[in-house]
Design a protein around this nucleic acid. Structure first.
Ligand SMILES: [Mn+2]
Ligand SMILES: [Mn+2]
Ligand SMILES: [Mn+2]
Ligand SMILES: [Mn+2]
Lengths: 221, 221
DNA sequence: GTTAATATTTAGACGAATCTAAAAATTATT
DNA sequence: AATAATTTTTAGATTCGTCTAAATATTAAC
């Protein structure tokens, strides 16, 4: 059996591997999990012992197939619960991550299978992130960050790469949500701030810090 | 903060107090929780230290107001989740207890408040047990066990005092569920087995072991 | 009211997960 | 290549929750 804590380590390693395409470092994991490097080393030994990770001293870690299965299943559960919280309980997208962080550890295959079904087998979570299927396969999303677009290009918001509630609340204020359509009007070369026309009506200016965290699908006309 | 384990002790103490109307004994708790008496004594010291229980060596335990609040809230969450699993995810009543045993430990007041609302503020769980309100008040159910009825008396099933899945599955086979109407036709003095007419149509015989675990509300005509 | 049986607590140990401080290995800098 | 900076591991301690075995207290039986 994998404990609550072990599961969190596996998920952290998965995310780092995914983001960097490299083995996860001890410090990287420590930071992700908000713990000390020493604790991480301890846990890596245990996870290696259980054959959930590939670990060589000083060389970083990757997941074994078994470890990968557990990690993707956690992500599947996390994202399905987020859909439940938003679609059924009417939570807002910035409120659900922390709750899902706990719910993802509930161990029942039939529960998650029924939940998936009840929600209509959603393929994306409230933040636009893909929900892996029961076999752990992710759907690949055709996306670019908004700051990669050039003037006059159009796009539609399909995701966010920041999940902090302050960021999401800021988007709420601007009435930017998944599905919102954009056209790039102007880019200031000095600070890379970007002026866009939203839903063909309202013009707003976004800082580079914001625009690089907005994931859009380009619309070719 | 109260841990998962501490919560389970508080709930066990609550249940014993409720059932016996006496302070819970060390052995009683040990049995309820499937652990050793020594472990219980250890934990009782910790819980007393946190002022969640009233504990005097060799004298048994009761809950303090704070401990009681935590315990009733756990029961509230447990039963609300059971309603969700049965009413929304179409689980059968014998499948939900174990899953709810985990879900009850999820800590989010807004979650449980929204869930309650989403379910239509149910007052009883799938086994007929009352769901305490947010203040911890239980609704008192007017009930007698079926074996207390005399011949020709009528009643309707409002609960079960056994929650084992084998028992519930046996009731499924007999098509006995909450709301099922009974009339007592006959009681065998030898083994106290009882013959009833179910829903005015089918006659079935139940052992005393079964009838004493069926909670009915008498119907006076 | 002693003695026997049972219930409860204490003693001592262990595994999981964590920490800080110190040692060792790796990587970067000159 | 030698030294400095950084990263990682080890050593040693702590807390939580658990165990078995032994000691003590309570309750039941004679
Ligand atoms: Mn999330
Ligand atoms: Mn998400
Ligand atoms: Mn239950
Ligand atoms: Mn129940």
């Amino acid at each position: 059996m994998t404990s609550f804590t072990e599961e969190n380590y596996l998920k952290a390693i998965f995310k780092i591997n995914e983001k960097t395409s490299k083995p996860a470092s001890t410090n990287g994991i420590a930071q992700q999990i908000s713990t000390s490097a020493a604790s991480v080393t301890d846990m890596l030994k245990r996870l290696a012992e259980k054959e959930l990770i590939n670990y060589e001293k000083y060389k970083g870690v990757t997941l074994t197939p078994t470890g990968n299965k557990i990690a993707t299943n956690l992500i599947r559960k996390h994202r399905l619960w987020e859909v439940f919280l938003v679609n059924k309980l009417n939570f807002s997208w910035e409120q659900v991550h922390d709750i899902a962080e706990d719910l993802e550890h509930i161990k029942s295959d039939s529960l998650i299978q029924r939940l998936d079904n009840y929600l209509g087998n959603p393929r994306f979570d409230p933040h636009g992130d893909p929900i892996p299927n029961a076999e752990g396969k992710f759907m690949i999303r055709n996306q670019t960050s908004l700051d990669q677009l050039s003037i006059k290009q159009k796009g539609v918001l399909v995701g966010v790469s920041q999940h902090q509630s302050e960021f999401l609340q800021y988007l709420n204020e601007l009435e930017i949500k998944l599905g919102t359509a954009f056209e790039v009007l102007n880019i200031t070369s000095f600070d890379k701030s970007i002026k866009i026309r939203k839903d063909d009506t309202i013009d707003i200016t976004l800082s580079h810090e914001v625009s690089k965290n907005l994931l859009v699908k380009k619309i070719n006309e």
